[in-house]
Design a protein around this nucleic acid. Structure first.
Lengths: 377, 377
DNA sequence: CTGTTAGCGCCTTCAT
DNA sequence: ATGAAGGCGCTAACAG
């Protein structure tokens, strides 16, 4: 209704309130900090009124400066574009809310340089702790943080050389779960597709677990073959090359009866070639195991472009991460307990901030397999 | 390599640096603020060295307290789950980066109460301005902000009663673009599906523009029918009901030549069964115009569940917003210039912070139609 | 060119 | 139960 007044002179300070309430700053401060028991009901009422009248709101910065803690924590995200991040964030926010913390969210957009800058910026704002889910974090990058005295907890990936709490998916179990599912459903030619994993512990673990299960399966079941394909999403040409390799395998695997030889190598140039001989039947349908949602999306888009809307008839797709389009497209997925990951991360951090000195803890949460049409039969 | 030292005594202060450099705080301060021209090269070098040695990093909070500005701006998002928000955010971050601002990102998770709390919290941290993309913002909610003296710029929606800059999609043009596209491609039964739009200006505008075009079309072309369907995503039962209504329409419109009776009920048990007799030709295919991505996703999921993977053969889907799964599923979309929206918002805000006093400005950016298989033929 | 002196808004002894 | 004084880390006049 009424137009808001344009006059916005200057926010009331504690001094203003004191004057308005006819008392000293100390009492106001006490009121603000909830030390009610030490204030006469009378004074308390006056203060309350003054605050109301002046629409006073304490300046967090000033409080922080004085008491040394500003209730700010940093949350460094490598990639908000990844639904995983947003979901984790929800948990983080909920926990912060519950613990009276304010998360400073920083989005590095997959740029290592950004990560460094943000970390340094957070430090500059004297955040009380940091939750890190970054790409290029190396021990030295985090030095100003982990070492500099401000507590840090890692999400999804650990950083070697840096001892810190970390919380994330139980990668081994998840990769095993997925691989077994594929094997159990008769797929004997499985491609694990993952972004460059040398630097990222979670990817490493997933890939290793996949390989382990596959090699075990080789002995047990007929002769399942497992391949690892690296998909460097940041390098379009590398992606091209990797996908082409995949296409060859798919084409070769398709169709019944006749034997086909396929030579494959990985994208890093450090080619790991493998020769496989198919023996046919419907069972020849290849299965793709995407290490995370971005990879799965890339694969799905490519396959759809190449084989048409019906691409799933030729290839099965399973992904770690359960993005919103998974249900729509019918791919099976391993959903991460993202919300809880975020929540726990904050809890850990909070404990550290409160001075807990335990040795670094790891919290590995289980993933949930969501079977959809893609990997059945 | 080396384990990070656990000793993390206390961050160096400007005083420490001064002592270390054998000079006064003022010079340090000058150095920090880039007033190099006023420092002897010699002193400057000593300062540089001292800072390096102590790994000193100025305390932003303290600076902010003193100079009255902390370079912090608030960014209130109604729903980070909506890809739109994340994309806008990227623009915001880029702009902040360029302008030396630090965005404090707040995610209200579609809860009006949260929005209020965050707004108040931001105020408490003395942010210099706020970018608001909220759900339940009413003039009074923003009072502490817009009126309280701290500049605000609105994104995507305007708030009546509140005069402030706003930047967003040119909703009228976008809705027209989409509707015309549908009409041009022979669809004569179009459903505009939107979340409750009484409170949200952008939704209102889109719906109105849709209706306008449709009524115009009724006169010109044959006799196109336009419907508006409200989908309250927050109310599962309401969603059920709305989707059931849609199903009826789809069943009725479908199929060529021969008459077919189909009985349908929805899953809630609260069955709204309907017997329909199809009469039409291919032209009878209904088109759905989703007002944004969340709506489109909801529709797509439902349709897929009801009509199977081939649902697009029965219904065409066009959406404002171009989520990552749009390409995958082949629906046509109107992509918003999200990045630019975010970028401009920050620019506006920055100007306000710098004291620009112009009357409230609106910046309406055009959407881009991306035609895909769904709405062709 | 460089250092001294006051605060910014708040919390915290320490008296009263 | 209440208030006065000092200081958190930094900047901004003023002197030298």
């Amino acid at each position: 209704m009424s137009t808001t007044p344009l006059a916005a002179p200057r926010r009331a300070t504690i001094t203003d309130v004191a004057r308005e309430a006819g008392t000293g700053k100390t009492s106001i401060s006490r009121y603000l900090n909830g030390e009610m028991s030490v204030l006469s009901p009378e004074l308390r009422a006056r203060i309350e009124a003054a605050i109301e009248r002046l629409n006073y709101q304490p300046n967090q910065m000033a409080r922080g400066l004085k008491r040394g803690r500003n209730r700010l924590i940093g949350m460094l995200l490598a990639d908000l574009t990844n639904p995983y991040s947003v979901e984790v964030l929800q948990g983080v926010e909920a926990a912060c809310h519950a613990l009276g913390l304010m998360p400073l969210i920083c989005h590095a957009a997959n740029e290592v340089e950004m990560e460094r800058r943000y970390l340094q910026l957070l430090t500059t704002y004297r955040v009380e702790g940091v939750i890190v889910n970054a790409l290029g974090v190396r021990e030295e990058t985090l030095r100003p943080v982990g070492g500099g005295g401000i507590p840090a907890v890692l999400v999804d990936r650990s950083v070697d050389g840096l001892v810190a709490d970390m919380v994330g998916l139980d990668n081994r179990a998840a990769a095993e779960l997925g691989t077994r599912h594929l094997l159990d459903n008769g797929f004997d030619d499985i491609w694990f597709v993952v972004q460059p994993f040398e630097q990222v512990s979670s990817r490493q673990l997933r890939e290793a677990a996949f390989r382990e299960v596959m090699s075990g399966a080789g002995g047990t079941s007929s002769d399942a073959r497992g391949h690892t394909l690296v998909l460097n999403l940041a390098e379009p040409v590398a992606v091209e090359r990797a996908l082409a390799e995949l296409d060859r395998a798919i084409d070769a695997a398709d169709g019944p009866g006749d034997a086909v030889a396929s030579v494959t190598g990985n994208a890093t140039g450090n080619a790991t070639s493998s020769v496989t001989v198919r023996t046919g039947g419907k069972g020849g349908r290849i299965a793709l195991f995407a290490a995370n949602a971005p990879v799965a999306l890339c694969l799905a888009l490519h396959l759809k472009a190449r084989y048409g809307a019906d691409w799933q008839a030729r290839v099965a797709l399973l992904s770690i991460d359960d993005p919103e389009w998974a249900e729509l497209t019918g791919i099976t997925a391993i959903r991460q307990p993202t919300y809880e990951i975020g929540y726990r991360a904050v809890e850990f951090l909070h404990e550290r901030i409160e001075g807990v000195q335990t040795t670094a803890r790891d919290c590995l949460l289980p993933g949930e397999l969501i079977v959809r049409a893609s990997t059945l039969r």
